[in-house]
Simulated assay, not measured.
Amino acid sequence: MTLPHPPLRSYGRLKSRPIKPRQAALMDTLLPSLRVPQAPFEPRALMAGAAEAWLEIGFGGGEHLAAQAARRPDVLFIGAEPFQNGVASALRHIEAAKLANVRVHDGDARELLARIPDASLERIFVLFPDPWPKARHHKRRLLQRDTAAELARVLKAGGRLRFASDWANYVDWSLEILSGAPGLTWTAEQASDWRTPPADHVTTRYEEKRLGDCEPVFLDFVKG
């Protein structure tokens, strides 16, 4: 299924400060072996014996991605991130932990989603994406109705999606959009369900900076 974004445009920085020499070397040596195929592919086929396939969109520096992968070596993790400094940082975490169950898409997540078959993933994480807080920039947000429909499409029945943000407007925006995506149901039953970090959440240094305008909110959805 091809997303209606011709041509795709990724907003925000793709690179900032110079990448450290060690991380730059990993971009040349390790990254090519971890990149996902450029053609349509079955996620679990990327790792022999993978019990499940999980996706993190916008993994930042890779802390959450690497920590989750270390916890579940039986799961194939795919991380998508266009910011090159973040990719370089993630490669450092992957190498340091000797993770064999991580694959990387160093580009726009919408391009990646278009190559993933229906009902292929058990979990998706979208954690603290760029909020683009000004109203005129809301069209730049990752979560739009067509993207949410794609996330729902690639999730298996019973699969879970987690969105987190510390910007109140983006939380409201995402709750409305994700609740309207085909087959997705918000699992919260009481306020603590979205105010308290889930038991399996990994807090990153970025999250600890509290750069938003509210406490972190966690929205978990399940695919019916």
Rank of each mutant, 00 (worst) to 15 (best):
A109Y: 07
L178G: 09
P198D: 08
R110F: 04
A39M: 05
A157L: 13
A39K: 14
A48V: 11
K98D: 13
A80L: 03
F77T: 00
S174G: 07
F125T: 00
Y170L: 14
P82E: 06
H138T: 02
L175W: 11
K139D: 06
G180M: 05
E122N: 14
L178C: 05
F59D: 06
G58P: 02
H137R: 08
P40C: 05
D130N: 15
P197W: 10
D172M: 03
V154C: 06
G86A: 11
M27E: 15
Q84F: 01
F59S: 07
L14C: 00
A199F: 03
P117G: 09
R145M: 04
W167F: 14
A88C: 08
P133H: 09
D220R: 13
P32F: 08
I124E: 01
P198G: 10
G12L: 05
S16H: 13
L151S: 05
M27K: 06
C214A: 12
A90V: 02
L34K: 06
G49T: 10
A69N: 08
P133T: 09
I57D: 05
I78Y: 05
V154Q: 05
V102H: 03
L127G: 00
D193M: 09
L127M: 13
H137V: 03
G58N: 06
S120T: 01
A25N: 12
I177M: 08
N169I: 00
R195Q: 15
W167L: 04
T147N: 01
L8A: 11
R9C: 00
P133C: 08
A67Y: 02
D106N: 15
N101R: 11
V126D: 01
L8T: 10
L91F: 03
A45F: 01
H138P: 03
D146C: 02
D193L: 10
D193F: 11
L46G: 04
R210A: 15
A97M: 14
A181Y: 09
P7M: 03
R123L: 12
V217T: 12
E150W: 13
L91W: 06
N101Q: 09
L142I: 12
L30N: 03
Y170G: 00
W173V: 08
L178Y: 07
G49A: 07
W173T: 10
V154H: 06
L113D: 03
V102S: 05
F83I: 01
E63M: 02
R115N: 02
R72N: 14
D220Q: 14
A149I: 01
R210H: 13
G183W: 05
P21C: 02
D146H: 15
A164S: 14
Q23K: 14
L142Q: 04
M1G: 12
W194S: 04
L184W: 09
S89Y: 00
D146Y: 14
R22Q: 12
S165G: 03
R153D: 03
D200R: 05
D28K: 15
P197G: 09
V217F: 02
A45V: 01
R72F: 11
V202R: 10
S179D: 12
P21D: 11
G224S: 14
G224H: 14
N85H: 05
